[in-house]
């Protein structure tokens, strides 16, 4: 399904394009594009768990938090180099992902949602109470990596965009593999999947581990991009933000995981012109997109004949 976006087939070409435009962008553009890249990573991981494997998890911000704090603490206290800290943050998130994955194994649907929701809140709580390590609610400054010859904003742009392209490509390969097909089988019917010889326990845990890794890496990059983190930044609103992104982009679609963050983040930046009405215009943007494309933008592409304007007309007629 993602394959119809042919420009995504050439991540290398994309990498070159972004590398070439980097130096002519101003800091605001670099920052917003970096932010989009971070959320593309986060959304891709979440979509693997939620959209492909069908696990109704609403505690995903926990992995973002774990990754962010791990990267910050490993660099501050252990003086680990940036790249090592980011990978270690991803790995640590995987351990937590496996743990929560085991806890929720007997649960489905809303029951799974509720426990993961509480897991997310508990992680924020621990981060706020473990003050020796995290400095509590007052938060931690996060060091920024230096690449000789590049401004720190340009460096972050290359790091985030590069990581996003690599991780999206990895996810594309994954969904086309046996694992990806097993995810979809579990989503459609766990019983049928196990009849086919697919171990639901094993693949649910794999889905948790992979999405936690994406969340952890995204968290490490987000922390570095923001250069200051507090536990409050990882509350339920973060999960809701990324949930909105994948629903608007397209559940169960890698392309959707890219489109969603672009629409939500870029939309919010464009809507800055609406000044103090931004909360309303942003809400209307979400509502409008979801009514026009309930299956997500990537879902629209599946129905080539769908006519957006016809859809608007029929909606108006129905009212």
């Amino acid at each position: 399904m993602a394959g119809s976006f042919s420009w995504l087939r050439a991540p290398a070409a994309l990498l070159v394009v972004f590398a070439v435009v980097g130096p002519v962008l101003d800091n605001y553009q670099l920052y917003v594009l970096s932010l989009i890249a971070v959320y593309v990573i986060f959304a891709t991981g979440y979509n693997l768990l939620m959209g492909f494997a069908g696990q109704f998890d609403v505690g995903q911000a926990a992995f973002l938090a774990i990754g962010a704090y791990a990267a910050a603490i490993l660099q501050i206290h252990l003086q680990l180099p940036f790249a090592v800290a980011v990978i270690a943050a991803g790995v640590l998130a995987v351990l937590f992902g496996l743990a929560i994955g085991v806890v929720v194994l007997p649960l489905r649907h809303f029951y799974l949602a509720l426990v993961t929701l509480a897991f997310g809140q508990t992680v924020v709580l621990v981060l706020s109470l473990w003050r020796d390590l995290t400095n509590g609610f007052q938060g931690l400054p996060v060091p920024r990596p230096e690449i000789p010859g590049l401004s720190s904003n340009l460096a972050m742009y290359y790091i985030t965009i590069g990581t996003a392209i690599v991780m999206v490509q990895a996810a594309r390969n994954l969904v086309a593999s046996r694992i990806g097909r097993a995810f979809v089988a579990i989503r459609e019917s766990e019983i049928a999947a196990s009849v086919l010889g697919i171990s639901t326990v094993r693949y649910r845990l794999i889905a948790y581990a992979i999405s936690a890794f994406y969340g952890g890496v995204a968290g490490a990059l987000l922390a570095t991009l923001l250069s200051y983190i507090t536990p409050d930044a990882f509350r339920l609103t973060e999960t809701i933000k990324v949930l909105t992104m994948i629903v608007i982009g397209g559940m169960g679609s890698i392309a959707g995981s890219i489109i969603g963050p672009i629409i939500v983040i870029l939309g919010a930046e464009f809507l800055r012109i609406s000044q103090s009405f931004q909360e309303i215009t942003n809400g209307a943007l979400l509502l409008g997109f979801i009514i026009l494309a309930p299956m997500g933008i990537a879902g629209l592409a599946l129905h080539r004949t769908t006519d957006l304007f016809g859809k608007v007309r029929s909606l108006l007629r129905r009212q």
Partner: peptide, 30 residues
């Protein structure tokens, strides 16, 4: 919200309602 999204799945309706919640909060503030 509910009717335009009747044939859509559960999550699109959740997102639609969250959009509506943001509009309501913004209007309340105004």
């Amino acid at each position: 919200v509910s009717r335009p999204l009747m044939s859509a799945g559960l999550l699109p309706r959740v997102v639609g309602l969250m959009g509506m919640a943001a509009i309501m909060k913004g209007l309340t503030r105004i």
